[in-house]
Design a protein around this nucleic acid. Sequence first.
DNA 1: TCCTATTGCTACTCTTTATGTAGCGCCGTA
DNA 2: TACGGCGCTACATAAAGAGTAGCAATAGGA
Lengths: 116, 116
Amino acid sequence: MSTQIPTPGKPVRGSQSGKPIMALFDLLGRSWALGVIWQLSRGPMTFREIQTSCERVSPTVLNKRLKELTSSGLVARGDTGYELTATGEELFGLLEPFGAWSKQWADSLQESDPHA
Amino acid sequence: MSTQIPTPGKPVRGSQSGKPIMALFDLLGRSWALGVIWQLSRGPMTFREIQTSCERVSPTVLNKRLKELTSSGLVARGDTGYELTATGEELFGLLEPFGAWSKQWADSLQESDPHA
DNA sequence: TCCTATTGCTACTCTTTATGTAGCGCCGTA
DNA sequence: TACGGCGCTACATAAAGAGTAGCAATAGGA
């Protein structure tokens, strides 16, 4: 378990500079990171609840993501399970518009390529 | 080259439902996808320019990402290289606030863990 | 015309990351 | 005491990414 957790100020996957945005992109650009935040925005969830709401995530990966998100201050463990921290909620605030946008995007893709 | 490109409406990595947001997260949750969009927001760039501006991206992966982003309608090839489409610019509009936010996030992480 | 330089990209090997399944140890309840 | 759900961990396999070399195509100059 020698996984490097992306941290601003330290070189991360794909960036020597340690630019915060690159650290953030590294953190979020891992499988299920965005999905977990998305799910948790609906309220605290247990490990297994997250697992089932994200349809296929393996416990191995979910555990890694939760550790990364926790040590990045986006997620914490409360009494009722995992939940977003204030910082995590903030980030979700930025993420939320993606929901509506993704629907438009889906529609526009269908128009231009109905066979998809 | 049997890579499945995430497309809303079709099952994607981690989602049978084909929910647009999940397809989007799958697309963006791949290494360098977010970084490439970020870089391209500054204007059209050649393949090699993207490669060097993203400090370490291997041509293999960059090519895959560009193909994915192109077939998702976010990126296109113009006369002066790769560039964001109107849709891509739209998405970047949502992404832009992450820049400022990531700096705050970096600061708050340093406070709570100065050894990072 | 030939040389050179740059571009987009493929081929290849090796490492890292993710998947999928099984199951353990720890509660709380009956 | 047995049972169930919980948060995981272990393991084997598959997929994705890194890193390096180099090719075909185009552009420019001598």
